[in-house]
Write a protein that binds this DNA or RNA. Structure first.
Lengths: 182, 182
DNA sequence: CTGCACTATGTCTGAAGTGACATAGTTGAT
DNA sequence: ATCAACTATGTCACTTCAGACATAGTGCAG
């Protein structure tokens, strides 16, 4: 009954022991590119994982009102995670506000729509440049079995996504007339 | 304070008057490709839109315990919708289970991962074929200002997405070795 | 020595969303 | 005639999630 968020946490823990705080940091980057969660959600989920014996922790002295808890995967947790990885993902409903706006774009002024897409294009190009820098830091794909393979493969996905998205923005801008209204 | 779902409903109503049931059908296809909602959510949201005077309805006799309600946009609703279309979309957190699995894929057997990606690839290719058939039904992009422009532009986005995704799946399968384990 | 950013854990409220339950007339096939 | 599928509206319980609130020690800069 572990939720997808639970598996996201297990996936972080598979790379090394972490506190809840550290996991929350990983949920911003690099996991944040494909799964996000606030720290409130993470602490609650860690308690559930604890109850299910998929993780354990050692309390250590640290700052804050409570001791800090360094979490680790149990053997059971590792087995659950390995099983989950190759189970077909359940498809989630798509929710893309920009595409929804596009569906209704015929109601608006072409100039305003073009500006919105120009902004989106700029954002995609910035992210693309960032991902390309990250890719350059790799020396080709790491071998499967290396945790860095996960990082590289997801980066490849992000790269492809940003390219597709940028191209679509360019197509939209083209459709909206070249140099008139603004 | 209208939610994105509210605007999705207004976008449907901008194309013609509908009952809640009809809106729910549109939320499966074609809107469902980029925004989904169950009928329970839709009926609740229609009541809110009603209270905010963005839609109105006429009750007509129809099947079922209550009269059917044919909803229409008010002038106020149409203005709200037009204003929303060109406001920059607020970015939602990405949540992609397949990419999350990929991040943890180094833990699993390559053969099982390859099979999962082969299944995904098949699904993307099927959707791609469907979208290409739909695109062929258009005689090039309709003019901006025509509601059909919205359908065509979102279809273009879907086409690009499926191609990017299929390509990534093929890359993954390549990485996982060509003809050994199964 | 003051104040800020960071580490660190947790609770609570409310919104958004999913799926089941409830009800009932119309239409078409067998 | 009967049965299933479709039209049609709505409620309820539950889960997920985001953001605010609460608390408090450490380490560094000015």
């Amino acid at each position: 009954m572990t939720s997808t968020l639970g598996f996201a946490i297990l996936a972080v823990l598979a790379r090394g022991d972490r506190t809840g705080y550290d996991i929350a940091a990983a949920m911003r980057r690099p996991i944040g590119f494909f799964w996000t969660a606030g720290h409130s959600q993470i602490h609650a989920e860690l308690q559930k994982l604890r109850t299910a014996c998929l993780v354990g922790y050692e309390a250590r002295h640290g700052p804050g009102p409570q001791d800090k808890k360094v979490y680790h995967l149990t053997d059971e947790g590792a087995a659950e995670l390995r099983g989950w990885v190759t189970r077909p993902p359940k498809e989630r409903p798509e929710r893309d506000e920009l595409v929804l706006k596009t569906y209704a774009a015929w109601l608006a002024e072409a100039g305003l729509v073009r500006r919105m897409f120009a902004d989106q294009l700029a954002a995609h190009e910035a992210r693309l440049a960032e991902y390309e820098r990250e890719e350059a830091a790799f020396d080709g794909p790491p071998p499967f079995g290396d945790p860095r393979f996960g990082n590289y493969a997801t980066l490849r996905c992000g790269l492809g996504y940003e390219r597709h998205r940028a191209e679509w923005c360019r197509w939209m801008i083209d459709q909206l007339g070249d140099s008139d209204s603004l």
